[in-house]
């Protein structure tokens, strides 16, 4: 098992390297932040920008190097640098916002905000998917089944940003109606709130409810279809019929014989749900005014801030890969035929 985990972790490295190279080349090739900054300075001062300023800007953002060299510096920091670049040295590279904006600091504060949302949303959507899939399968071709199936199709067709805007305004109306603030609809926690991790978490719960609900409904439908299909297949299999014939109680058959096997295909879709929630978090964070990673990367995309975008690509890639690893381990737990030696 340990060997398996180590081997899989090592295999992540080339995938992450490939993903970051591809992203870096694409994002870097289409963006020219230096030119944008020069244009901005020109607009504010009304005078042509001296060449020395342009050169200084290029040097500070490493835009005087070629793309491969810039990638190498970003990754390793080995070479002629200003000491603010190189992942291996723990530096994320310069932001176009200047030295006041430390990417590493921003990420470390924003990461937990986003991870909190994404993890809750993924777990909630998998839970809802299992529940609705199993109920649908047990009551196959009944009215419940058709209603749940239709709801699944409906949420599959609903864009997260629309659902998010609707729920946000709905929560605002509900708060007005009840004269309370059960649902916080702006921000990820009270501004300026201080405390230890647990207190920060408790403080964030009212802010978490609505965005988590939105992401949960946006992500559960696809998995619930697979859960229903696999549950149906298992329920029609011989060993379940045998268990019934032996006179095992229905509940026990469902829980022990059917559900456990039917969960295996769903484990495949857990990483998919995670990466979907990462994407959805970008949208919900910007709707609900969170200061999380997703919004950070959106702002960076708009500004052409390559190193911030790359930081997001790396982190979200890591989260997704860890999700894949966990789902592979879950396979072994759920399916006794799979052994990791």
């Amino acid at each position: 098992m340990v060997v398996f985990i180590i081997r899989r972790t090592l295999l992540m490295i080339p995938v992450l390297l490939g993903a970051t190279i591809l992203c870096f080349v694409l994002v870097d090739a289409v963006n020219d932040p230096v030119q944008d900054m020069v244009f901005e300075i020109q607009q504010s001062t009304g005078e042509p920008v001296p060449q020395s300023t342009v050169d200084a800007l290029e040097a500070s953002l490493y835009y005087d190097r070629s793309i491969p060299e810039r990638y190498w510096l970003w990754l390793t920091g080995i070479g002629d640098t200003n000491g603010d670049i190189g992942l291996l040295k723990g530096e994320w590279g310069p932001s176009i916002e200047g030295s006041a904006m430390d990417i590493g600091y921003e990420i470390s504060t924003r990461f937990w905000i986003t991870l909190r949302l994404v993890l809750f949303a993924t777990l909630a959507s998998i839970g809802l998917a299992i529940l609705s899939g199993v109920v649908s399968a047990v009551k196959q071709y009944s009215r419940t089944d058709y209603t749940l199936t239709f709801l699944g199709f409906l949420f599959l067709a609903m864009p997260v940003f629309w659902l998010g805007s609707l729920f946000k305004e709905g929560a605002v109306q509900l708060n007005k109606l009840l004269g309370s603030t059960i649902f916080q609809t702006y921000g990820s926690g009270s501004t300026g709130f201080q405390g230890n991790g647990w207190e920060v978490f408790l403080n964030s719960i009212p802010y978490l409810i609505v965005p988590t609900l939105v992401l949960m409904l946006g992500g559960y439908a696809a998995i619930s279809r697979y859960q229903r299909a696999s549950m149906l297949e298992v329920m029609n299999s011989d060993y379940v019929r045998l268990a019934r014939a032996k006179g095992v109680r229905n509940r026990t058959v469902m829980r022990r014989h059917a559900l456990r096997t039917a969960l295996i295909p769903v484990a495949t879709f857990a990483p998919l749900a995670l990466s979907g929630a990462m994407g959805g978090a970008m949208v919900t964070e910007s709707i609900f005014g969170w200061r999380g990673l997703g919004v950070y990367s959106l702002d960076a995309i708009r500004a052409g801030d390559t190193f911030v975008v790359m930081a997001y690509v790396l982190i979200s890639g890591l989260v997704v890969l860890v999700g894949v690893l966990i789902s592979d381990i879950l396979y072994g737990v759920l399916d006794p035929r799979i052994r990791y030696e």
Partner: peptide, 23 residues
């Protein structure tokens, strides 16, 4: 297939948004 793995890891909204935003 390894290339498909790489594509899976790249956040879809980020890469498409970055390219579309740059136009």
């Amino acid at each position: 297939m390894r290339f498909l793995d790489i594509m899976f890891v790249i956040p879809f909204l980020v890469i498409t948004g970055a390219i579309a935003g740059a136009i």
